[in-house]
Every structure is written in C-alpha cells, then in structure tokens.
Design a protein around this nucleic acid. Structure first.
Lengths: 195, 195
DNA sequence: ACCTCTCTAGACCGGTCGGTTTAGTGTTCG
DNA sequence: CGAACACTAAACCGACCGGTCTAGAGAGGT
C-alpha cells in the first residue's frame, strides 16, 4: 500500500477544510475535494460513511481545533489583556494576508450557511466558537478578571474580531482587523485595571 | 396579463434575497427561487439575462439598501452616539428574533462565500457595507466627531455588530448582540465626550 | 504460502443544477 | 384590425451533483 494508515483520510479532511472555509458548504463539491486531494471517491465514502455532512462536520471541528491551538499559543505569549487581544488580531490578520484574503475564520462561512438548520455541521461550528471563547475567558480570568466580566469581554472581543475579519475579506484590506483589535484591547486593559 | 409591469421581477428578487440571505449563494438553487416565487423559468431569464449571478447581485444590492434605510431610520431617532449604536443592535437583534434566527445580516453569508473572487456579487456586498458605514459615519460626525475618529468608530461598531450577529445566529441567542451594542455604544459616547 | 482485513480505484446511478429555446398570451398603439 | 411588444410558460439540454457498488491491490498475521 502506498500510503500509511489514515493518511488519505487526513489529506481529504485537510483539503475539505480549506475548500469549505473559502467557498462554503453548498458551493464546494465532493468532486473538487477529491480532485484537489488526489483521492478516489471510494476512499471518501470508506472514511466518511455519512458522506458530505460528516466530512464537513469533521473538517470544521479539526480546523476549529487547530486555529484554537494557534490562538492559545498567541494568548500564552501575551503580557496582559490588551496584548492578548492585539495578538489574536495579528494572528487572524496574518492568515488573511498570507492567503490573499481567502482564509478568514475557518468556520464562519459554513456556520452562517448552516445556522438555520440543526445537525452535526452546526454543532461543530458552535463547539468551535465556544472552545475559542473558553480559552480567551480563562486567559482573562488569569489576569484577575471576574468570571462574568471575562466572559462578556471575550464575547465582545470575539464578535469584534469576527466582524472585522468579514469586513477585511470583503474589502481585501486587513487594516480594520488591526485597528479593531487595538481598540478592544485597550478596553480590556481598562476594565482589568479598574477592577 | 395577470401581473402588472415588473411585478414578477420584484417578486423573484425578493424571494431570491430571502433565500440567499438564509442559505447562501451556492446552496440556493434557481429552481427553489422559482418555486417559492411562483414564477416560471422563462421569466427569470427574461428579467435577469445574466442569470444567477445578476439575480444575486441585484438581490444583495436591494436587500442591503432596504436594511440601510431601516438603519438610517434607527439612527435618525437616536439622541447620541451610545443611543445610536444600541439602536442599531436592537434593530438587528429584532430581525434575528422575529425570524427564529434565520435573518441576520442580509449580505454576510453571500459576502463570505464570494469574498474570494471578484464579480458583481462581491461588488454589491462591498457596496452595501460601505453604504452602511457611510451612514453611520455621517451620523457620528453630526454629533461633533472628527472625520477620522468617526470613520474608525463606525468600523468598530459595524465589525462588532456583524460578529455579534454571527455568534448570535450560531448560538440561537441574541443576548450577545445587545450586550456588544451596549458596550460599543458606551465607548462611542466616551470618545465623543472627551473630544 | 495463504487468508484476511483495510483501503484504493473508478464505473455507474438517478436527480438536480444553471441555462437555452421555442411557442404562446395578453396589452398597447398605429 | 393587426402588428409590435412585453412577458409568461414549460420542454429541453449537457454537465455535474452526492451517493452506491463491485473489483482488486497491498500489508500483516499465522
């Protein structure tokens, strides 16, 4: 056998995550995933018996977890709340710039498409956001912020960054991500200080 | 003739705007638009000779303009920067709640799908955001804010609201929209005051 | 050696996709 | 009255959709 155990599965998953992120669920065909990953159709349905839905749910969960780790690393190196949020902004903005404004949030496009109907894809997207928010909330708490305050601030930061990412992709200009991160970071520092 | 001049065209456009908003561009078939609007296929290609792309571009532009008017009305009734931004939040949150979390931003889903490639749809989405931002910026300037300050604050408010709308749709809970609007409103008031 | 189990390979399916074409219907205006 | 026009109506097209199925290649165990 040419590939080692599970290698094809991983390659399909990665390709699918990239395509879903950039084009959305409905606009991405399985044929495209297969062509770009170099896998035959039989392999796809061997590894993902529930078809496109399972593939998308797993792809979103994986992409979300990977981005979560990158976020955690950025947060770990931050000196305080303001630094933490500008670091998140820088991380996301860099992803945009490095991909010619194709890679924004790994789950946002699919999340919006699937927001209407329940199912594993929606669950995976929702879980991803809650994972990220949990990580940020805990980091803020580590700087002495109260539980509810940290949670609300994390919501505010995540919302702002997500929206800025959307605006930046549409404009093909990442300036807004940096400026929004800077402002929200300043608010976070202020709230942490006056506590 | 059963319908008056252009009535079928308007009905197709409205149905298309609703479906694109909720499901995205790729996931919405022309057949569905036709079925729900009650129009035959021939009429669609008579009124929109460039097909699906033209339909989507016009639908986004119309939906964006309508929302822009609703936003302008909300802004017109506001007493100051804080009031203005909470009013926008209330408007958007109400749309979510009234539609069982289906109607968020009328263009966001399509905008993300089409962010990668240039074309009339992307242009319509970008134009919509710039229209909204222009309206908010001018309203802020009316309260004595400097040009650049108003522009940056409008970017911040729009980003935050868009992101909150995304989060709220995924969670099926509009709380985050209200809380984000309140906080950003407070910042806006503070900036306007200390000027 | 051989069997078994995992995984690859791709032909094939019915259905739906966006799009085209042709015929016809009602209105308007000369 | 009848020709020109605006629009409706739906049959039809090739391409592609997601999904199924069967055949076989390769590695590991005994």
């Amino acid at each position: 056998m040419a590939q080692s155990r599970g290698e094809t599965r991983a390659r399909i998953l990665r390709t699918a995550a990239d395509l879903f992120q950039r084009q959305g669920y409905g606009a991405t065909g399985l044929t495209q995933v297969l062509t770009e990953s170099g896998a035959p159709k039989g392999s796809l349905y061997f590894h993902f018996p529930q078809g496109k839905e399972q593939l998308a749910a797993e792809a979103m969960a994986q992409a979300g977890a990977e981005m979560g780790e990158r976020m955690a690393a950025a947060l770990a190196g931050a000196a305080g709340p303001a630094d933490a949020i500008t670091a998140l902004g820088a991380l996301l903005a860099q992803g945009l710039e490095n991909s010619d404004y194709r890679d924004g949030c790994p789950v946002a496009t699919v999340a919006l498409e699937e927001a209407g109907d329940a199912g594993p894809i929606h669950d995976a997207c929702q879980g991803t956001y809650e994972l990220w928010l949990l990580g940020l909330t805990e980091r803020l708490r580590g700087w002495g912020m109260a539980e509810q305050e940290a949670r609300e601030l994390a919501d505010l930061a995540m919302s702002s960054l997500q929206g800025a990412l959307l605006l930046a992709r549409v404009r093909r200009d990442s300036t807004v991500v940096h400026s929004v991160a800077r402002r929200i970071g300043a608010i976070a520092a202020q709230e942490a200080g006056q506590k």
